[in-house]
Amino acid sequence: MKCGLIVSIVSIVLLLAGFTQADQPPAVTAALQSTLRVEKKDGTLCSSALLVSEDGYTLTKASEVRKTEDHRFVLPDGSLTPVREVERDSQLDLLLLRCEKTTGLKAAHLEESKSLSMGQWLLSPRDGGREIRAGVVSAKRRSIPSAGSAIGIQMDLGKLDKGVRIKAIIPDSPAEAAGLQPNDVVLSIAGEPIDKNQGVRDLIGRRSPGDEVEILYRREGRESKCLVRVASRAHIESYLSDDDYANGGVSLRADRFHDVLQHDVPLGPADMGSVLMNLQGQAIGINIARADRVTTFALPTEAFWPQVKKWIEKDRAAR
C-alpha cells in the first residue's frame, strides 16, 4: 500500500503540504481533522485541542490554558470558534470546552489502548494540526508522582527583619515573567507573611502547577504586588540543566498523573492536547505532557474518557 509518508530528518514528519486528500493514510486524515489550534491573543500557539464529539465538545491541557477567555480557538480553515468552558479538572489536567462551530473538524473516535505494546508506531499532530509526526511506545505504562512546584527564585539565606531577599531569578521562569528581580524582598505569598526561606518553599510547593499566587515584595523601599504562575519543579529545573536540551521546552506540568503512556513522537509543549493515534487511525489517547528531551506522556483513553463522557452527558442534560 502506497501512502506517501515523508521521512524527514527529525524522526518522521508527515507534512500536510504536498498531499492530496486521497493520498493521505486514514490515520493522518483522522488525526488532522480532530485538531484545533489554541492560540494566545497575539497568535502564538500555546496548546492543541481535540474534538471528542460531533456536537462540539473539545479537550485541551488545562495547565497551559489557564484562562479560557485569554485564548482563541482556531479551526482548520483559519476561522475562530467561540467556546464555553464546561469542566476544568486539575487531577487529569484536562479542560473540557464546547465549541460553537466545528467547521472542517471531525470528532476522534476514542478506543481502548490496552493492546498497545512497546515499539508500536503512533501518530500525533504537530503545530496545531499543520503536520503529523510519528514515534513509538517507548517505555512502560505507569503513574507519574509529583515532582513538586516552584516559581524559579533562589532565596538569600541571610536574616532580614522582615521577608526574604531574592538572590537570583532563573531565566525564563514564572518569577522572571512576573517581573521579579534579584534583591527584591518577598514579604508575603498569597497573603501569608514570609520570614524564612523554608516558608517560601512550603507556600509555593503546596500549589499546583498552573495556579497563580499573589506575591507582595519590596524593591528600593517601595512595596508592590505581582501575580506569579506556579510551574512544576521539574519544569524549572529543566532551565538549570545545561546539558539536556529539551528542544522547544517542557510542559508547565508533567507530573501527578495516575496512568500515562510514554512515547517518542517528537512534539513540543504546544502540541499537548492533541490526539495520539495508532497506524489504523484509532485514537488511543491524548498527549498531556512533554517532560524532557526524550519523554512525552499521553493519557490513555481509559484514564480520562469515562470521566469526560460523564461531564459531557451532564452538560447536555443541563442545556
Binding site: 515523508i6 493514510p25 515499539g119
Partner: peptide, 23 residues
Amino acid sequence: SANGLESQTPDLGELLKVQAQVQ
C-alpha cells in the same frame, strides 16, 4: 548532511515491517 534524506518516502507497509522487526 541531513538534506539528502528528505525525499525518502516509506509506505505504511515499511513502517509495519520496521515495527515487527524492532518488536
